[in-house]
């Protein structure tokens, strides 16, 4: 008998022996009243920034592509002559970031087409984030061929670009709205990232910057395209 049938049979037997241990009373007092939808509003944006800052992340709120370019230039200049990871993401292309990087003379690398050991040397990685969750200061990275995992992961500094209208109040609203907003939850792998990587494994002392980024900077922007 295969492992599958052995396990299933054991479960079914156990359930027959003790078919229903549920309490009669199923009202737990837990009810989630529908919240007003505040997705993308300034209130939600403030909450997102506040929560992300609390866990050691940084945010900048920007209006228009030009502002994004400006602040990115400031951030990238610090990494002149160093390696910066930039995936082949069309949105980054649209924002003119590859061009900007050439101007500033950083060593731009696409992790998709470079060696892993070289990518691991990077000082910074820039990616888009597909959504934000305000309640926890979380960014949602949805992985695809254009948006790999490594640009957000290997370098000590991760800069994520997040559209203002994609910040949802909480996890539940995110899941409910994601589909409508064109994000297919179950179709692709995804990572929810909240602030820099951290550990407290030695005497519970909080150390930010464990195996992943030490700094997470989220640039929240509204696009010129509306």
């Amino acid at each position: 008998m295969s492992g599958r049938s052995v396990v299933l049979l054991a479960i079914q037997r156990a359930l027959q022996e003790e078919p229903n241990s549920l309490p009669k009373e199923t009202h737990t007092g837990y009810d989630r009243k529908p919240q007003p939808d505040l997705t993308g509003t300034d209130d939600i944006l403030r909450r997102f920034s506040e929560r992300l800052t609390m866990v050691g992340g940084e945010t900048h709120v920007l209006s228009g592509d030009e502002a994004v370019n400006c602040i990115l230039r400031e951030l990238i200049v610090e990494f002149k002559d160093q390696i910066v990871l930039l995936p082949a993401d069309p949105e980054l292309e649209r924002l003119g970031i590859p061009r900007l990087m050439n101007e500033v003379a950083v060593n731009r690398i696409q992790p998709e087409s470079s060696s892993l050991s070289l990518a691991a040397e990077a000082a910074m990685g820039i990616t888009t984030a597909q959504a934000g969750i305000a309640d926890t200061g979380t960014i949602v990275l949805i992985h695809s061929s254009e948006r790999g995992r490594l640009s957000a992961l290997l370098a000590p500094v991760h800069v994520a670009l997040l559209k203002k209208e994609m910040i949802f109040p909480d996890k539940i609203t995110f899941l409910a709205k994601a589909q409508q907003a064109g994000l297919d939850y179950s179709a692709t792998s995804q990572t929810w990232v909240t602030g820099p990587s951290l550990t407290a494994d030695i005497e519970k002392v909080l150390v930010r910057g464990a195996h992943g980024p030490r700094r997470v900077i989220v640039l929240i922007y509204s696009t010129d395209q509306g």
Binding site: R51, V55, P111, E112, S113, D135, T136, T138, H143, S144, S145, G148, R149, L150, Y185, S186, A187, T188, S189, Q190, T191, W192, V193, T194, G195, P196, S197, L198, G212
Partner: peptide, 22 residues
């Protein structure tokens, strides 16, 4: 004692041949 952990990773599917990681 965290509101959420530093990361939540959803392994929704294996990477496609076009993906360079995962």
């Amino acid at each position: 004692g965290q509101r959420i952990t530093g990361s939540v990773i959803f392994f929704n599917r294996p990477s496609s041949s076009r993906e360079s990681d995962g």
